[in-house]
Nucleic acid binder design. Structure first.
Lengths: 222, 222
DNA sequence: TACCTATTCAATAAAATAATTGAATACTTG
DNA sequence: CAAGTATTCAATTATTTTATTGAATAGGTA
């Protein structure tokens, strides 16, 4: 029962602080960074390249995320690697992503239109895929960069990074349906893979979600 | 396989749209509004009063939320009532709230300091309370405005709005421990109630969460 | 220790967001 | 249909956020 803070002042401060954390998330570049960091840790240069930003700009956005404690750093040799501060950050990003997709008709339209530029199929959801795997008639293809596959991947998935598929396509059999997956629903590597595969006569489709989502659902990984 | 959109352009647009939705949330006033609307629907004037804003200002913020499709309106007689667009909005708000509390030391400190101005007890969590209820030695007190109690409340809770407690305190028995709850972890009615009750010799504490959180957990309601 | 390179900082200009006020609008109700 | 009232709009100013550039820093490596 010490000195009572004014009620309005208390609320202004609390909601103000909560808004600060949310503001750190509320930027297109920073959202793309969070989405990338859901795969693991990366140095500034990689992040800048992948998101199409200048290094200084990427660094600045990373500082914003860091001071909001959403990401953290680890030094490895000459490089500083950024990674999500913890699981809760990823959960919240998922929540915002789902909310955005559900509430913003424009997002859904963009996703559909873009995908249809590559293949006409409706992507398959993680839980459907899980059932399908049990039938044994599916091959899972992880088309992310090799290094990300190495950090963790779906149980029994084959690694075939998007920029190697055309060369290595003969390794695949046409007897089974191929399901490609990548980083997440906003990642387009899997769509590019599906286009390449169907063009070559394979029966292929993509999974909506990515590896981090699969993992978050508690489905089998390696 | 129609006209392919440029990959970078696609990403800029998608993350841009997602950020728009998030930006609609990323404001102290709007967060407080969302938190209030988690209780049900309210007209602009009530929202303005509760959040300490001018009506015009509140209306403006409500428009922002509405065009992001986070809230929706229903007309009742002369009044336009605002309510959350759906469950997902509340889920996302919870996610952001938890993230903020966990990552922003300032928020936790504010909450602790404020609470200690009223009573020294650590509030009890919903799941602990659920267990305690089974022992039968607890009385639950809903200290929100009567109308909100009427819309829905915890199973067997008594309604005693904060501004009536001092008059009606004799209705309560000192044989049982009293647990007060209100709108949520950032709502302070329950703290005020606990202060009043302990001063009068009752054994009382607050629940951390509020009714909407209790409901979201699937615990028994009426 | 000195160099090298990844990363951050600082300063500026441009763009977006917020609060405030008073006027305008759009319903309902009588 | 008229009147009254809840709500929204519009315009202005203040504040915050963002991109860009080049310089500074800091840590590892030789």
């Amino acid at each position: 029962m010490i000195n009572k803070m004014d009620k309005r002042e208390f609320k202004n401060k609390v909601y103000g602080e909560l808004a600060k954390t949310t503001k750190a998330l509320a930027n297109p570049h920073r959202m793309e960074i969070i989405d990338l960091l859901a795969q693991g840790s990366f140095p500034v240069e990689t992040i800048a390249q992948y998101t199409g930003m200048s290094i200084a700009n990427a660094s600045q956005h990373l500082q914003v995320l860091k001071s909001a404690r959403l990401v953290d750093t680890t030094r490895r040799g000459n490089f500083i690697h950024y990674h999500l501060a913890n699981e809760k950050v990823f959960q919240t990003w998922r929540s915002l992503r789902e909310l955005g997709i559900a509430h913003n008709a424009e997002v859904e339209k963009l996703m559909n239109d873009y995908r249809k530029g590559y293949h006409p199929l409706e992507p398959i959801a993680a839980d459907e895929l899980l059932k399908k795997i049990e039938t044994g008639k599916v091959v899972l293809l992880d088309v992310r960069p090799e290094e990300e596959y190495a950090r963790g991947h779906i149980h029994r998935a084959l690694s075939m990074p998007i920029d190697q598929i055309s060369k290595r396509i003969k390794e695949l059999s046409k007897d089974k349906e191929i399901i490609a997956y990548c980083r997440g629903p906003l990642c387009v590597y899997a769509d590019e893979a599906v286009e390449l595969l169907t063009k070559t006569g394979f029966s292929a489709n993509r999974m909506v979600e990515g590896f981090p989502d699969w993992q978050a659902k508690g489905y089998p990984i390696e």
